[in-house]
Write a protein that binds this DNA or RNA. Structure first.
Lengths: 210, 210
DNA sequence: CTCCAGATTGACTAGTCAGTCAATCGCCCG
DNA sequence: CGGGCGATTGACTGACTAGTCAATCTGGAG
């Protein structure tokens, strides 16, 4: 006999995966627990065997994924590479997270990170850890002199993270193309735009136009 | 002859204003229509005399305010000032909107602009107009040569708008101080960060080849 | 003063749905 | 085998609330 975890379908996992699809498709508030149970192919009551409430399902999904991201940011920060490359890696990780499981990222961004009156407030401490991780990368860059010192690192982290979330939001709302090529380009563009700035660096003289 | 809206206390307006407070405090989904009616000091049924549904109240609030912002962006774009100053004016307008009525901006950002499965999808066209207005400013800057041509204007607009929304989100979640001074500093910082970039420009030649 | 139309009231209805629970299943162990 | 226990089932309930509606009020016109 194979271990239960191996061959037997892990119903708890199936419920979580189904919830991602249902929450992404209908939104947390516009779906019923029975929708999740149906999508998972289990009985209604089983959802309450594994979770105490509908909200606990979303909390579990968020915390699972957010911890992975926090770990990734920490690991990237520990690398011995230039700060700009660290930010590029963070952007790459988040964008790849979306590419790998757009439904899950949609649920997290739409239902949690902006939900100031419900889940967002509940997970505020976790959310802030991500900002702080990015701010740490910027802070190191400022100290070594590669980043400007007149922009606070927390403020810089906010701009960087905000730009990434807006990018994902564009994909979520389907207003931006979502091809592999687009994802790869976005990783470079976001770092270029935020680190390098939108302005032309030719401060001395504008380009001599023929 | 004289509409009731003229002299008598405008109950419709009172309901809208009360709804802003209630939606901001409890969230659209976690409040009852009776909460709005109580807050406005009117009878429950009167809400349905002026609005067809709870959702119509939020739609009205959003459209009212969003149109003001679109008008402001259009007016700013038409000014004869440098592109960076236009962006600074747009950032200033949005930040002042928050300062003037934080509850309303909270409701719009939390309940609409990220609500991909409900109000966000409904108002997608309106929301995009704001992006497009900003992109237009960037596009003009690129054409005149002051902004880089290797970052698409739509992408730049997304970064800019995303950074601003993240800033407001920080205030909404009460993780950032909300003093007058902070608001004023933020206007300059956001333009500095996004236009000038996070990196230090002091290094002489960033492009060795060419 | 009478009449009307729109404003205002709040009790009521109809439907929804999160969460409960008693029954059943199926697997392993002694 | 038997018995025990967690997994699984799905019908049911209790609470909640968006939206309805008939009654009442109010203020101006004739």
């Amino acid at each position: 006999m194979a271990t239960a975890a191996n061959s037997a379908p892990d119903k708890r996992r199936m419920i979580l995966d189904a919830a991602v699809r249902v929450f992404a498709r209908q939104g947390f508030h516009h779906c019923r627990v029975s929708d999740v149970a149906d999508e998972a192919g289990v009985a209604y009551g089983l959802v309450y065997h594994y979770f105490n409430s509908k909200e606990e399902i979303l909390n579990t999904l968020f915390l699972e994924r957010w911890q992975i991201m926090l770990d990734a940011i920490g690991e990237i920060d520990a690398r011995d590479i230039p700060s700009r490359d660290k930010l590029r890696s963070v952007a790459g990780f988040i964008i790849d997270s979306y590419r790998h499981d757009p439904d899950l990222m949609k649920v997290i961004i739409v239902e949690v990170t902006r939900a100031a009156n419900s889940f967002g407030a509940l997970h505020l401490a976790e959310i802030r850890k991500a900002y702080e991780g990015i701010a740490g990368i910027v802070e190191a860059a400022r100290e070594e002199g590669s980043f400007r010192s007149d922009i606070p690192s927390e403020f810089a982290a906010m701009c960087f993270y905000g730009a990434i979330e807006q990018l994902l939001t564009g994909w979520i709302f389907e207003v931006l193309p979502r091809t592999d090529e687009e994802f790869e380009q976005a990783k470079d563009l976001i770092v270029e735009a935020i680190c390098g700035g939108l302005e032309n660096a030719t401060t001395s003289a504008p380009q001599p136009s023929a």
